[in-house]
């Protein structure tokens, strides 16, 4: 994890040192972009939101507290901006954005599995998707996710369990539609 770098990056950002911004961008732009892409399901929107997140970092970086959790801060800005945009405009799934996610692994079955998870995720509601992305994909601490979503820890646990069940249901539906060969490699 890159969180160990945070105090140093924050110290540079507080002094308006561009190396702090560059370091934060190098460490977190990829994960934040992946999160935004999977949350919004639209590449153009994810790009605009990524720009918004890092512009906000440049603007507010000098005001960050020395003990801030930079990673959680960036994901909070990203999530709030994305949710506000998605609630204002109707959600449009953009299949090409999901298929363009990174280079697929060479193994055919693995690619199929990853594709299924992406598709199952994108079929979920926004509030299920965000909690699975933050906890499952990004591996943020539960406490940070609860604060970010404005939930109590027990409410977060419930929401995560519900989202997990819905994801499983989507995966199960995909499994039924798969060929017998692909079905064999699914857990």
């Amino acid at each position: 994890m890159t969180a160990a770098l945070d105090p140093e990056l924050i110290s540079l950002l507080r002094r308006r040192d561009p190396r702090g911004f560059d370091g934060a961008y190098d460490a977190y732009a990829g994960p934040v972009f992946g999160f935004l892409l999977r949350l919004s399901r639209r590449r153009d929107l994810a790009e605009d939101l990524l720009q918004h997140v890092f512009m906000r970092l440049a603007e507010r970086g000098p005001e960050l507290r020395a003990d801030s959790d930079l990673r959680a801060w960036l994901f909070a800005v990203a999530r709030n901006a994305a949710v506000s945009q998605l609630r204002r405009a109707p959600e449009l799934a953009e299949e090409s954005a999901l298929e363009a996610l990174a280079d697929p692994p060479p193994d055919m079955e693995a690619r199929l599995l990853l594709g299924d998870v992406e598709r199952a995720l994108s079929a979920l509601r926004l509030e299920d998707r965000e909690v699975l992305l933050l906890v499952g994909v990004e591996g943020l601490e539960r406490g940070a996710v609860a604060r970010l979503l404005g939930l109590r820890p027990d409410a977060l646990r419930q929401r995560l369990a519900r989202a997990r069940s819905r994801l499983l249901a989507e995966l199960e539906r995909a499994r039924v539609e798969l060929s017998p060969r692909a079905r064999k490699v699914l857990p």
Partner: peptide, 26 residues
């Protein structure tokens, strides 16, 4: 399985645009 999903990298021109705009802001 969620944790195993591949990461993503923003396009180079987007990165260049964000870095330039943010540097001006800093």
């Amino acid at each position: 399985r969620l944790a195993a999903l591949p990461g993503e990298t923003p396009a180079r021109d987007l990165t260049a645009r964000i870095r330039a705009a943010s540097l001006a802001q800093l």
